[in-house]
Write a protein that binds this DNA or RNA. Sequence first.
DNA 1: CTAGAGTATATAGTAACTATATAGTCAAGG
DNA 2: CCTTGACTATATAGTTACTATATACTCTAG
Lengths: 275, 275
Amino acid sequence: MSKKDGKYLTTGEFAKLCKVNKQTIFYYDQIGILSPVKKNEKGYRYYSIHQLELFFVIDLLKDLGMSLNDIQQYMQNKSPESFLSIMYRKKEEIVKKRQEIEMKEKMIEAKISLMEEASHLEFSQVTLQPLPEATLYLSRNIQNISDEKFVEVISDFINELQISQLDSGYPIGSITKREQVLKGEFSNYSYLYIEQPNPKEGHPYFRAVKGDFLIGYHVGSEKTISHTYERFFSEMERLHLVLGEYVFEEFIYDTVVQNDKEYFVTKIMMQVDRG
Amino acid sequence: MSKKDGKYLTTGEFAKLCKVNKQTIFYYDQIGILSPVKKNEKGYRYYSIHQLELFFVIDLLKDLGMSLNDIQQYMQNKSPESFLSIMYRKKEEIVKKRQEIEMKEKMIEAKISLMEEASHLEFSQVTLQPLPEATLYLSRNIQNISDEKFVEVISDFINELQISQLDSGYPIGSITKREQVLKGEFSNYSYLYIEQPNPKEGHPYFRAVKGDFLIGYHVGSEKTISHTYERFFSEMERLHLVLGEYVFEEFIYDTVVQNDKEYFVTKIMMQVDRG
DNA sequence: CTAGAGTATATAGTAACTATATAGTCAAGG
DNA sequence: CCTTGACTATATAGTTACTATATACTCTAG
């Protein structure tokens, strides 16, 4: 504090209250977005408490994605009207940002519960379980599709997930039809899907499933998945079951948590009927 | 798409779906956080759909303040366990971030309503109005305080605002006692305050005010505020009122919306009793 | 077989800090 | 009064995570 003149803060004090590096305060002075109210003959800077409020506003705008350049534009040309119009714009942006954060929070929760669940699984077992109804967001049909078309369909699917905020954090799964499974074409999928724990209204591409499933896990890359299907088939025979209409596959451990393909884990849910 | 080998995405396609610049994808390959599953003899990169999920996770982590360096550390050493522990950490962080966003949203709303209100005010008028009870968060006493002590008290006040999330977006105001006002010491404040529209439990320094107030506005810098006080005093006399215990001052237009001090506007709320 | 759209690498530039080096200032204690 | 240590200042270089530009190779469609 300068003795001769009232209630001012030095650069260090000001920076501390702003919770930023002192250099940042110099920098803001340099680029002209926040200059001290006073500068003494030795070049020492002095800030007022009201400038603290200005800093907090700058910080708010910066946080909402405004560049220092744009902030500087405003600072050169302050007015209550333009401030108000910026606030209205930022209000819209922050609402969007809050919604994104809320969605990401849900995504993280989903990942946590998936990983916790996975850590208690016995990957070598195949079990018969009834599955409750679930809502899935499906891609367009991708059976026997050309590579070019595949890219197009996948792009639309992924884009829709992002635009309509359908990425729940659950894995992207695939659906194969009985016919293809019986022919041994385990990777000739008919649809991709993502589960929607809290389905939104107004989306046409949903489909619910419910019924008895043989559930088991394939450890290793997709190329060796036929071995696991064989185990499913013997189990089906042993339990006198017949293959239902669809098989669902979901990655449990994939490239997100494993570098080595040979340790990837795929969950296989095979719809079955009692023969 | 490569023809010879299944369902892969080129760098361009992949970048588009990730909604980032193609260069960013190169960069991620270069620093080793996301390398294509395949690279052909010409050096062309091919990505799988599962790598899209990996990109979304990277983006999520980045969004939550994780540096690419830290992300790379994880990617070199992936495991379900470490992924889970990162998710638990990020879950805490995102909750905090959501709360911050929610507070900032409220701050913006407050600024908007303050500015809208201000734009309809007639700054030249002094009016008698009853004010409802309001909750204020007060600083420690700053009357007749030394400059060093002042900085200390203000620092504590500002820090508490930030730690306890008391910055409602309303202006920081000052309270002057009758005695000082009568002596003409208009800037010898006793407290600083910030209004709390939704007061939190467990904060000791709150104080409610309620009663009749003379309300008017001072246009210009603090140095000339005595002129405006004179107008208040004549108005008080005219209405047969006597000065109450406290006077409240709040900046309506300050350095946030005006560059020229001469156009700053201070709202003065003078507690009065019917003589 | 050529045009144009795509791929690659390499290098430089950007925003918003952040760190480092060098030097001047100031208040408190011996 | 002088020194010490904590502050202030400027100037410059480095950092992160891109982003743009330049140059060259490749692939597909007409």
